[in-house]
């Protein structure tokens, strides 16, 4: 088994990780914002339901959530999950939107009340205040915790192997059955390169917001 062959094989596995990563972000970033709105809602019922949801999702292992999403539809409703990847995606999106929602909430609540009031006395509408005044400041404040969470997501994608998705670590463990142990450690390179790229991207975004303080 040559180095190139192993690399290609692992890369094929890593493409699963990348897909899961990208699709999770695509859905959980907006969903997280909606959940954040819910947890800040004036309506007590909505507020407590979202708070309970976030508690359950953050309070149980992601691996367990993967099992639940994958097995429960078949066991309870007699309609088995048709695709493992869809199951993984659902579990990841739910899990990460709960975490993202707390980051959004923290960011939104950290904006001083005076910014809203300044907008109000200048005759702006609620949505103008949110989009033109507050949002940019929220984004600047949440870039660091968001990058943290997103980089964690890159590595969490390998949890998908627990419902037998052929992602990179699963591929690497397969090599051990034919006596090759080094591909397992070699997988670190893929993660490091990917996370390195992300780190550069986030640094760039932070720099973009450097022109002002506050």
């Amino acid at each position: 088994m040559s180095f190139v062959q192993v690399s290609l094989d692992l890369l094929e596995g890593f493409s699963q990780n990348c897909y899961l990563f990208g699709a999770t972000l695509l859905f959980s970033l907006p969903l997280g914002l909606i959940i954040a709105m819910g947890s800040m809602s004036k309506f007590k019922i909505i507020k407590y339901i979202t708070k309970a949801f976030v508690w359950v999702i953050r309070g149980t292992p992601l691996m367990l959530q993967l099992f639940v999403v994958f097995y429960v539809p078949g066991l309870v409703f007699k309609t088995p999950m048709s695709s493992r990847m869809t199951a993984a995606l659902i579990a990841f999106v739910i899990n990460y939107s709960a975490y993202f929602s707390e980051i959004y909430r923290g960011g939104i609540e950290s904006i001083p009340k005076g910014q809203y009031e300044a907008g109000q006395v200048l005759g702006m509408t609620k949505s103008q205040i949110f989009f033109k005044v507050v949002l940019m400041q929220v984004i600047k404040r949440i870039v660091p915790p968001m990058s943290n969470e997103i980089i964690t997501l890159v590595k969490d994608t390998s949890l998908a192997r627990s419902i037998a998705i052929y992602e990179i670590l699963m591929k690497a463990t397969d090599f051990t059955t034919v006596g090759l142990i080094w591909p397992l450690f070699y997988t670190a390179v893929f993660f490091l390169v990917f996370c390195g790229g992300l780190t550069l991207l986030f640094n760039f975004i932070e720099k973009k917001f450097d022109y002002y303080r506050g």
Binding site: P112, G114, Q115, E117, A118, Q120, V121, G123, M124, T125, K126, V133, M136, Q137, K140, Y212, R213, G214
Partner: peptide
């Protein structure tokens, strides 16, 4: 909301903590 916004424009307010938009 709309009529209230119209009415408050009769007044301007300068805050103790300025509240300029930093960005």
């Amino acid at each position: 909301d709309a009529s209230l916004r119209q009415k408050r424009l009769n007044f301007g307010l300068v805050f103790q903590s300025f509240n300029l938009f930093p960005q």
